[in-house]
């Protein structure tokens, strides 16, 4: 999870490294720790570190981790010869290692040689049938080939064995959303919320799926989850504030004739409107008229 403080630190380090201020290793460590996809920067700065014998020897054993990181980044940037060199160095250091074998298979993937990659992964799985990362790579490969239904099948089979893997649940939820299978996506997000109840972004995503499904009951639940997101983020999540407004508007439209629950809903919504306006006034004063216009159209403010 990327916290606000860590994000600020990453931004600072990134601009420092980009302007040649040093701290490249620290930056690469942070990128690895936060699991971010900054392939271009990782490739340039990591390669600079690896090409400098003094800097490399200072890393000690961490050197090999850096080789792996740079290899993956190079594949992501389609610099296949760099990736190949890195993998060759690694396989010289660690012959017959599963981790290096996986990198080689990923190399096939990056070249688009699906059959070879499939064979390599099958071989790896034969040696170690419960290798989670390799199994996930097969899912990713099915996705890369555009075979989404196979990816869903693989993921479902994978999740039957490794139910606690929330990254896989998240991937499955995202695939379902992209296929517009909202009911299934909602189930995945429920699992995620159960596994990590303090992550506001799962609550937010669940609320969004519910809102997209529509219907009075779903909208009311979505509003509750939006409200929970606001609570967990201390009101700093603009998306959740908008969500509360949209849900209130949709609910009031659905229950136009009967206004039983008008009272309790209207307070939350007016508070959200207030928070949104305050936030816009502080951070983007030029866009306040747009916001008030939109809110007036939704009949949330008079």
């Amino acid at each position: 999870m990327v916290g606000a403080a860590e994000e600020a630190r990453l931004r600072r380090l990134e601009s420092q490294v980009e302007n040649g201020g040093g701290g490249a290793w620290e930056y690469l460590c942070l990128v690895r720790k936060l699991k971010l996809r900054r392939s271009d920067q990782v490739l340039r700065h990591g390669l600079a570190l690896l090409n400098d014998p003094r800097a490399r020897s200072k890393l000690g054993g961490e050197e090999w981790t850096l080789y792996e990181q740079v290899a993956i980044a190079a594949m992501d940037c389609q610099k296949l010869d760099v990736a190949k060199d890195c993998i060759a160095t690694l396989s010289k250091q660690f012959p017959s290692s599963g981790r290096v074998g996986r990198l080689e298979a990923m190399m096939h993937e990056a070249r688009g040689a699906w059959a070879e990659a499939e064979r390599a992964y099958a071989l790896l799985l034969e040696n170690n049938p419960f290798d989670q990362i390799t199994q996930k790579r097969r899912v990713a490969m099915a996705k890369a080939q555009g075979n989404i239904s196979a990816a869903v099948d693989y993921l479902n089979k994978y999740l039957e064995i490794f139910m606690a893997d929330h990254d896989a649940w998240r991937e499955l939820a995202e695939i379902y959303v992209s296929l517009q299978m909202y009911k299934q996506a909602a189930f995945c997000y429920e699992e995620l919320i159960l596994a990590q109840p303090t992550v506001p972004l799962y609550h937010l995503a669940y609320a969004e799926v519910l809102y997209t499904m529509g219907g009075l009951e779903n909208l009311q639940t979505a509003k509750k989850y939006y409200a929970l997101t606001i609570e967990l983020t201390g009101g700093k999540n603009t998306r959740a504030l908008y969500g509360v407004c949209l849900c209130s508007a949709a609910i009031s439209q659905l229950t136009k004739g009967r206004n039983k629950e008008e009272k309790e809903g209207s307070e939350l919504q007016s508070l959200a409107v207030e928070a949104l306006t305050k936030d816009y006034k502080k951070r983007a004063p030029a866009k306040v008229p747009l916001l008030t216009n939109m809110l007036r159209n939704m009949k949330l403010t008079s």
Binding site: A4, E7, A110, I133, M141, K143, R170, G234
Partner: peptide, 21 residues
């Protein structure tokens, strides 16, 4: 959980499922 240091602003990229095309 909602303090400025701990507030979660984004999820990590799902690198295990990274695709190259």
């Amino acid at each position: 959980p909602d303090s400025d240091e701990n507030r979660i602003v984004s999820l990590p990229t799902n690198l295990d499922f990274m695709i190259f095309n």
